[in-house]
Computed example of a mutant assay.
Amino acid sequence: MKTHKVAICNITYRCERTINNMREWLKQVRKERNLTQGEVASKAFINRAFYSQIENGLRNPSFVVARNIVSVKKFSNDCCTL
């Protein structure tokens, strides 16, 4: 029973760490492309406050919103590795 709890905790920790890395990566790429949160949000058809909450880990985007953000930033497949 304890090994299952440890395994679940490790998976949860890794998922949280990966999500935090993605959020930092999202900010980094936005800044590298000299885009403001408002510019990304507008082009992704969401408001700036929502985009800010996504970057800061307060909200999670839907698949459609995430796809719109990716299309705004013109990410290539090779830069999606963490």
Results as ranks from 00 to 15, higher is better:
Arg59Ile: 03
Gln28Arg: 13
Asn20Trp: 04
Val72Asn: 01
Leu35Ala: 04
Asn60Gly: 12
Gln28Cys: 06
Asn77Glu: 11
Val6His: 08
Val65Ser: 05
Asn20Ile: 01
Thr36Gly: 00
Lys2Gln: 07
Lys73Ser: 01
Thr36Cys: 10
Asn10Pro: 01
Thr18Arg: 13
Thr36Asn: 06
Phe45Leu: 08
Arg33Ile: 03
Ser76Met: 03
Lys27Cys: 04
Glu32Thr: 05
Glu24Val: 00
Val6Ala: 13
Asn10Gln: 14
Glu55Trp: 06
Ser42Ile: 05
Arg67Thr: 12
Gln53Asn: 11
Glu24Tyr: 01
Glu32Ser: 15
Leu58Trp: 03
Glu32Ala: 11
Ser71Asn: 15
Lys5Ser: 13
Cys80Ala: 05
Ser42Thr: 08
Glu55Pro: 07
Glu55Ile: 07
Ala49Gly: 06
Met22Gln: 07
Asn60Met: 13
Val65Trp: 08
Asn68Cys: 09
Val70Lys: 03
Val65Leu: 02
Ile8Thr: 07
Ile46Gly: 04
Ala49Leu: 09
Ser62Ala: 04
Arg59Lys: 15
Cys15Met: 14
Cys15Trp: 02
Asn20Val: 06
Gly38Met: 06
Glu55Lys: 06
Cys80His: 01
Gly57Ala: 10
Ser76Tyr: 05
Leu82Asp: 05
Ser76Gln: 11
Phe50Gly: 00
Phe63Tyr: 08
Ile46His: 04
Asn60His: 10
Pro61Glu: 12
Arg23Val: 02
Asn47His: 11
